[in-house]
Amino acid sequence: MTWFKRKDKNIQTDQRKEMPEGVWVKVPKTGETVHRRELEDNLWVDPLSGYHFRIGSDEYFSFLFDKGEFEEIGQDIVPTDPLEFEDRKKYSDRLDEYQEKTGKTDAVRVGIGKMNDLDVVITCMDFNFIGGSMGSVVGERIGMAIDHARKNEKPLIIISQSGGARMMESVLSLMQMAKTSAKLAQLEESGVPYISLMTNPTTGGVTASFAMLGDFNIAEPEALIGFAGPRVIRQTIGRDLPEGFQRSEYLLDHGFLDFITPRPQIKGKLTKLIKILLHKYEE
């Protein structure tokens, strides 16, 4: 019966404290502490337990691009509040607040540069910007990244981390699913490879559009990946979810991922795959 035993960590969708401050860092999975330097050297993966702390575009770009160098596009596209949305807070205030807090203008960035000497376009979401939610800016920037990859025949990598569509843009954010998928349909015809890397968490409208549409769908270990969130599913079916449900390993087992790679090996593995696809080993 342990199969359906309640595991509280299973129903949490938000580990608020990613990349904590301080010299000693507690690993949520084990409760042990580890030195910050050791984590940084290992790309924020606990060397002992393999626990992957969530990192953002700054960190991914710094180790995926050679010498951390890249050109950024899409920064001239910034969010507005088209619906004048207000819940307990105004969306416009929320945007200001997150821009202030994160130093980012929205929840995705597009970098163009070299990865082990290969020209690539890397798009990376930032979960710490309104839960990595997809609104008009995310859709437009991803569209720009896809267009750039297509026109310049550079392989595209999109790193997802998102709670889904951005409610504060209502139907406009829903339409970003259609928009990004339509752009990927165009990319498909050009024969340029697209690799979707899913990290913890990738859910909702992001999973149900570009994240699941890679030529290759890959993930970091133990990432939560799904359409509906675990809490909603638990409410719907009225029972607890099996251990490991909606985690990377579960998706791999059910045929929705090509492989799972620990973060420190991602760059090497992506390079190898892309070099095969581009016939680089034949040169």
Binding site: M177, S181, A185, A208, A211, G226, F227, F245, H254, F256
Partner: peptide, 26 residues
Amino acid sequence: GAYPGLEAEERGQAEAIAKNLKMMAT
């Protein structure tokens, strides 16, 4: 909404929707 059930996730709710979007585009 799409059904938020365990089997729906198991059989790839997100993948099914995503694939339709891309197919409809063309």
